[in-house]
Amino acid sequence: MNILELKNVSMIYGQVKALYDVSLSVEQGEWLAIMGPSGSGKTTMMNIIGCMDRPTNGSVILDGEELSRLSPAELTAIRRDKIGLIFQQFHLISYLTALENVMVAQYYHSMIDEGEALLAMERVGLKERAKHLPRQLSGGEQQRVCIARALINYPRLILADEPTGNLDETNEHIVMEILRKLHNGGSTIIVVTHDPEVAVEADRTVFLEHGRISNVVRKNDVPDAVKAKDMQLSSAR
């Protein structure tokens, strides 16, 4: 079953065709990577899938619901209930502790549950840092808090825009490990990345260029060079 379906979706800003006539289906439990040069429309696509923007044209069906028919308040409800967002800049609330940042998502969703939030912190390996403010955490740790927050309400779909873009290699591996676990647990993940090493983990990689899908690569079709590099890395680990 498809959890997400884009049909002839376009996003046009004045003269700029940020997305043009894009059609794409994503299966339940699939790990999809989106790659492409800067300005090719990756973030635009994420915003549309994440119910934060409406396309100029075309239809988006998320978990069986046609998004263009929904009111802003209903879109908010979908974001809240079905989507987990992971950002390149983490976007933690600076005046709340790591744990409270996770609990904020619970608060907007339904009700807070400190025990569960702590458990989520534990899952990303940050239980002891729960009471720290974001600025007291490293970039990698902040990203893990961001992931814990994205996962706390059991979203149907996890969207990550450049989740490793601001991280060093060690932290990148930690984050990838978490994503891998999520994938193995059956979560649907869509990740935007510049990094072939990240893309190689995905079941499928979609390449965008000038707002259009230029290429689609399945995991098994990944060019040997990339695969070989991946093998080296995993054996080195």
Binding site: G50, M52, A73, T76, A77, R79, R80, D81, L85, H91, I93, S94, V104, A105, Y108, H109, R149, N153
Partner: peptide, 16 residues
């Protein structure tokens, strides 16, 4: 603005 946008992105409605 960022913080507000973030809160809305993770599901805060206008009323909250």
């Amino acid at each position: 603005r960022k913080e507000i946008g973030l809160k809305k992105a993770i599901g805060a409605d206008n009323r909250s």
